[in-house]
Design a protein around this nucleic acid. Structure first.
Length: 118
DNA sequence: CTTATGACTATGA
DNA sequence: TTCATAGCCATAA
């Protein structure tokens, strides 16, 4: 059975440890469709209001900026959440992805998913 | 089917 | 560096 797109997104976001962040593009890339970065955001916004164990506040854009989605109540809320986990922000108010961007162990290797156009 | 929107990303000025 | 534009694709009307 194939999991839905958002389902797979949650699976990755749930793997992001504390004190780390991940970008939409990275998630989409891990799913095999880097173009679906936008759909990743859509999936996050579609998170059930049951407030599942999905650390959506650790998902930011490729520029290290927060999204301030309704799931947090505002930009400051998301920032406080990350700071509470140990994430330090730069003067510009952005996160240094070079230091906080998290990737799974198998990052860079996708043995299965989307085969080449063969 | 078309049109409009969006928790995005890459490129050009 | 910031600002504007193009490309992308799923969802909603």
């Amino acid at each position: 059975m194939s999991l839905s797109f958002p389902q797979r997104v949650y699976a990755i976001v749930a793997r992001v440890p504390r004190g780390r962040v991940i970008t939409y593009g990275a998630i989409a890339q891990l799913l095999g469709d880097p173009r679906n970065a936008r759909q990743v955001g859509w999936a996050m916004a579609a998170t059930p209001r049951r407030t599942p164990p999905i650390p959506a506040h650790r998902v930011i854009n490729a520029r290290g900026e927060l999204s301030g989605g309704p799931s947090f109540g505002g930009y400051d809320i998301q920032r406080k959440m990350l700071e509470a986990e140990g994430v330090v922000f730069m003067e510009d108010g952005r996160v240094d992805l070079e230091h906080y961007l998290w990737l799974p162990r198998s990052a860079g290797v996708k043995p299965s998913g989307r085969p080449p156009s063969g």
